[in-house]
């Protein structure tokens, strides 16, 4: 799940300066769960923009805001509706998917925070930094790349106090969590293996994955 946070309204209004006819879009996936771009948020934003003098020409919650072709099809309903800006209430990917489908400026209403899990309805926690080389198999399902503030690969630094991270006393030291779980599973030997620091070539961006090409090259 891509977790987003709503931008401050004043920043959204400021970015829309000069626009008159605005189309507002959200996303039925992550942004709905994040409560930044579901039906409710899109409707509330339409009311707010109207109250602030914009003409909201339409609203739409995309089924999957990061699927280019899907969004293209969904936009057809507005082909006869002129608009000079799109306010996208989804992650940065959704904003760019929209930008690739329209010929007017697009503006983000959200900040994209992290790939995380829904712990409960309103609590999200970062779980994966998408490092491209998953280590969870040797760390008892706790990600040190994401949950250790220093992304250490060989065990903890000396910075934990009472089991908590030096960067935040509310956050558990990932390596102590990993130790406890590996110990429980009788897998402490995994902790004794020295790991290479991650290489960063694998994270070269912008990245693309082309399954057809990969299959052809196999």
């Amino acid at each position: 799940m891509i977790i987003t946070k709503s931008k401050k309204l004043e920043d959204v209004l400021d970015s829309l300066k000069g626009a008159k006819k605005v189309l507002i879009t959200g996303c039925a996936e992550c942004s709905t769960v994040s409560r930044t771009g579901g039906e409710n948020e899109v409707k509330a934003m339409a009311d707010t923009l109207t109250a602030n003098g914009f003409e909201v020409v339409g609203t739409m919650v995309c089924e999957i805001g990061c699927n280019k072709n899907n969004v293209k099809k969904e936009l057809k309903q507005f082909k006869d509706t002129p608009y000079d800006a799109v306010l996208v209430m989804s992650c940065g990917d959704g904003v760019q998917t929209m930008a690739g489908n329209v010929d007017v400026p697009v503006y983000p209403a959200s900040d994209t925070m992290f790939l995380g899990e829904v712990e409960r309805v309103t609590l999200f926690s970062q779980a994966c930094k998408m490092c491209g080389d998953c280590v969870l198999g040797r760390t008892a399902g706790v990600c040190p790349i994401t949950k250790c503030a220093k992304s250490l690969v060989n065990g903890p630094c000396g910075g934990a106090k009472n089991g908590k991270c030096e960067t935040n006393p509310d956050v558990d030291c990932a390596w102590i969590l990993i130790y406890n779980r590996l110990k429980k599973f009788g897998q402490l030997d995994k902790l004794e293996v020295s790991n290479d620091d991650k290489g960063h070539k694998i994270n070269l961006y912008p990245a693309t994955i082309n399954l057809k090409e990969e299959k052809a090259n196999e």
Binding site: N154, G158, A160, I176, S194
Partner: peptide, 17 residues
């Protein structure tokens, strides 16, 4: 190394590394 640490085994494992 950090001798005053809980669990100390974790520091010892890292010391060996």
């Amino acid at each position: 190394v950090t001798p005053v640490y809980e669990p100390v085994e974790l520091q010892l494992i890292k010391m060996k590394k």
